[in-house]
């Protein structure tokens, strides 16, 4: 009750302040024009569908590449040194490079190479950039999960005769992945937003579609439409993340509504 009342009151104050400001009529015209919103909606929605597809395909690839890198980084023994070296270098490189830079280099550079057998579309190379950058982050999340599994679990598995691979597959990874699911969901939400960055390569996603609509008459309402759609997509994922986290016993004030 109290929280509801205070929320309504605060919202009321903010809205009143904005609406009574001198520039409000002009802002409303260029950012919140209902006609323009209706007009731009189909194009922006179609762009958003592309964002969703990019997010889903990249999400799966990122999980696979990230997990592979994490396993490579945690293999022990001198024989596996090249694996560890490669995975460490990869993670260092792509965590350090700004995503936008990777996008530009791959999006404009790779097609220019005209590699045979590989598509030259901006969508393909943009998605590659997302996979490269994100898998470096996700690899670190997986690695933290793998290292959080107590060594006695490995000892128990090995003492039963399970090989290194079987121990990873049946004992370590199931526990590791369960522990990092909330963190991974968080990265997925963030990927969903960053999928919009491939617009810089000219791919027509929700943001680019909004931009095109805007360019017709300098009315920025389509951006607001795109923003609203992104938020609508993020909220259910964020709540789902909270739900998963809570189910696993990660309590605490954060994340509770």
């Amino acid at each position: 009750m109290v929280s509801a009342a205070s929320t309504v009151l605060l919202l009321g104050v903010v809205v009143a302040l904005v609406v009574t400001s001198p520039g409000w009529p002009r802002v409303r015209e260029t950012f919140l024009d209902p006609h323009k919103a209706v007009e731009a909606f189909p194009a922006v929605l179609e762009g958003l569908w592309l964002n969703i597809r990019v997010m889903l395909v990249c999400g799966v690839l990122i999980a696979v590449v990230g997990l592979t890198l994490a396993v490579m980084r945690t293999v022990r023994g001198p024989v596996a040194f090249p694996l560890r070296l490669f995975a460490t270098a990869y993670v260092d490189l792509f965590r350090g490079l700004p995503l936008l830079l990777v996008l530009f280099v791959l999006g404009f550079g790779a097609p220019a190479l005209r590699l045979s057998g590989l598509p030259s579309s901006a969508l393909f190379w943009g998605s590659c950039a997302l996979v490269l950058s994100y898998s470096a982050y996700v690899a670190e999340v997986f690695r933290a999960g793998i290292e959080s599994v107590h060594p006695s679990q490995r000892a128990a598995a090995r003492s039963l005769g399970l090989s290194y691979g079987q121990t990873m597959r049946h004992v370590v990874l199931p526990q590791a992945v369960r522990r990092v699911v909330p963190a991974l969901m968080n990265d997925l939400v963030s990927l969903q937003k960053d999928s919009g960055l491939i617009a810089v390569l000219g791919v027509i996603d929700a943001i680019r579609a909004a931009q095109i609509e805007t360019a017709l008459d300098f009315n920025f309402t389509p951006y607001v439409v795109a923003g609203a759609l992104f938020v609508c997509l993020t909220i259910p994922m964020a709540r789902f993340t909270d739900h998963v986290a809570r189910k696993q016993g990660f309590h605490g004030a954060g994340g509770h509504l």
């Binding site: 006695s152 679990q153 000892a155 128990a156 598995a157 090995r158 003492s159 039963l160 005769g161 399970l162 090989s163 049946h170 004992v171 199931p174 526990q175 369960r178």
Partner: peptide
Amino acid sequence: DAVRARMGVVFQAYNLFPHLSVLDNITL
């Protein structure tokens, strides 16, 4: 691995696999 498969080990802290049921712990 083949040598270990011929021995059974029981640890002080049990070291059961928490993500598996009791039955799956034994059948693994």
